[in-house]
Design a protein around this nucleic acid. Sequence first.
DNA 1: AATGCGTGCAACCGCCTAGCT
DNA 2: TAGCTAGGCGGTTGCACGCAT
Length: 301
Amino acid sequence: MGKGRAPCCDKSKVKKGPWTPAEDLKLISFIQKNGHGNWRSLPKQAGLLRCGKSCRLRWINYLRPDVKRGNFTPEEEDTIIKLHDSLGNRWSKIASYLPGRTDNEIKNVWNTHLKKRVGILKKEIMITTTTQEAFETNNKGQYIDVATSLTEEATASAAGSCSPTSSYGSLNLCNLSTEHVRAAEARDNQDQVINEIPSDSAGADIDFWDMLDTDLSPDLDYSKVLDINLHSDQSQLQAPHYTHESSSDKYDECQKWLRYLEIELGLTQTSTTTTTTYTGANYYECCDGFTSQDQNNTMQV
DNA sequence: AATGCGTGCAACCGCCTAGCT
DNA sequence: TAGCTAGGCGGTTGCACGCAT
């Protein structure tokens, strides 16, 4: 019966900080071959100087093949707002309603974007409601305001799929769209008008993962790249355990995905000229010796 | 061009809980 | 039943990057 909680790992012997491409590949390769039955023992078996928790987090939040990358769509943002209203900060629960999105990602989006927007909207609606009440009391003039229409729209159709408790005061957020929130935010920012808000998915940031073409290295062979025991023959690679499937389609999908990763991580060269940049220090630390790189810490992919 | 500041996000920390002995 | 372990979760931090000055 030891006192307190035993540390999950020896902090002095594990590496911390951002993951390097080589570490990523080691983790991916190991999980593809062995699955991830025991996170605690995984780092040692995979040859990683990382805490098991760190491996799990990296896999779940970034390396999993089914992780949906790229910006959140307005629809996804709407969903998060609605779900947060009814579930609160239960990020993993919210994530379960958004396939491919992780709790960490959703939490970040909420904290950096959505919370502010909803806060602004709530503030505006409070002001509007107060003004409207004053108007109704005095029974003078005619009151027209965008926020009022938002409130009416939201409350009028409150019989939707959301829980009855899903409301901020009299406002049911289930029917607030991202456009509503953004419009309110824009008004809050010195009445700046946003007539057309570009979709996140159409933003200038080209997601690197999506950008990659299928014309990638056909000779994937991790054993030549990493000092881990893997099959050198591609045909002998096993389908990942996490898929729980053995169909050739799924396997092909995994292979395709791995090729994406190979390129993404700069572990192979293609004829394309697309260039991405990794953080220099990390990249030098792990990749020196088995990938191409120029002196500007830029990997030619 | 250099510097400062704000923002976004990956990763860490520590607590909670389920499962096992 | 109590204690331990590992996984899961939410809060928080710190760094990189972009933009403004």
